[in-house]
Design a protein around this nucleic acid. Structure first.
Lengths: 217, 217
DNA sequence: TTCCTTATGTGAGGTTTATCACAGACGGCA
DNA sequence: TGCCGTCTGTGATAAACCTCACATAAGGAA
């Protein structure tokens, strides 16, 4: 199902799959998934282990009153640890996965995932590594939400993204788990400090150092 | 270093270690650690994989202004996933571990941990399982902190603990990442609703159903 | 008992964030 | 050009939470 070009792209991003017999990888197929697609949602079972070739996936939790919070983002070369978690524990998703930029991905069937884990040391290390990183991310997120003020978190977000950042205030609010008006007001404040320059759907960082300093204070 | 009685207690709580050659386990030693001990702290490296035989460990994050938040609790039969994470990623602790009830534990050296992961399927599954559970916990914690009001979280905490609960309001505040006065006030409210009865360092749940309902609303 | 430490109760006041209700601004499109 | 949908700005208000400052209470130790 997979052509040799795709196969080599997969192996480039996921070198730990070298050991996987070509036949098994061939069983998978390349999928193209448009932005906005809900890949999975809470309480759904999970089918396989996704290998992202391009695009990105937002993993979020949403609250009863319509607000949402981004838990983490999955990029090419990574994989959704929540999926691994589901596969390993045979449980269900505890969050929602939404395609941010349209995806090219190959879905590794659950059976292949399990046999890889059993036989391939490199793959195992890769999965452990993913778990480790995500757990770290989540711990940082918890402390940020619990202890940091919104302005600090916003500054941190801006400092950690390429500038100029193309996004609406609502998008940013969703990432931080807040409300659009708050973001607008805070951004205005940052602009008055000379830290950013604002445009429609565009935020340009003009004083990265100040933002970083403010974020970690 | 370990007597056969201890060895059998370890194997009872950690059956996945059956395959471990007796010689390797014998290298470890039984440690007794009093309540209040700081087992590890942020930015410290980590030595081994702890096997808890009795007692409990609180894993917390603390903020600049003196508040703290409990991430999770480690009980006998479990292990501190943060430790695994450190061992696997060769990174440092990102939180603080404080002994709650005094510990009996056996420390598995890092080398043994790694060889077990490589060779023992049952142990691997155990570690993956731990990761999965903690990740789930952390995701729930994040959403709770981000979206739930303090009164709901407090109700949930009370509903999830044995009654009567012996703890000071400060202890509870630390677990929830809040302030003591808030807990006192909210508890008073719960008492007025007839959901709990309050005593010094003691909270007795009198209407579990109401608490649960309120927590999940 | 008396003293002392720790735990709890409580009011006042402030900060932070959310919510509501619009107004204005921008950009694409007919 | 004019229209329309989306994005942004802004004030008013309220909710939730925190902080400070004490007062009171409960239990243990001398």
């Amino acid at each position: 199902m997979i052509d040799s070009d795709t196969r080599s792209r997969v192996l480039q991003l996921y070198p730990m799959l070298q050991e996987l017999p070509a036949a098994e990888l061939a069983l998978a197929s390349l999928m193209l998934i448009p932005a906005g697609t809900v890949m999975f949602d809470e309480d759904q079972p999970c089918q396989g282990f996704p290998l992202l070739l391009s695009g990105s996936l937002r993993v979020i939790k949403s609250s009863a009153n319509g607000r949402e919070l981004q838990l983490y983002r999955v990029m090419p070369g990574e994989s959704c640890i929540l999926t691994s978690s589901c596969l390993l524990g045979d449980t269900r998703y505890q969050a929602r996965g939404i395609v941010e930029e349209s995806l090219e991905m190959v879905m590794l069937p659950a059976t292949v995932f399990h046999s890889l884990l059993r036989t391939c040391d490199a793959f195992r290390r890769y999965v452990f590594q993913l778990f480790t990183e995500r757990l770290t991310d989540m711990m940082e997120l918890v402390t940020a939400v619990a202890f940091q003020k919104l302005d600090q978190r916003l500054a941190g977000l801006l400092a950690g993204k390429p500038s100029p950042l193309l996004a609406t205030h609502q998008t940013i609010a969703d990432e931080l788990g807040s409300a659009r008006e708050m973001i607008s007001r805070l951004l205005k404040g940052f602009a008055e400090q000379g830290w950013v320059r604002l445009g429609r759907e565009q935020i340009t960082v003009t004083d990265l150092a100040a933002l970083k300093k403010f974020a970690t204070f």
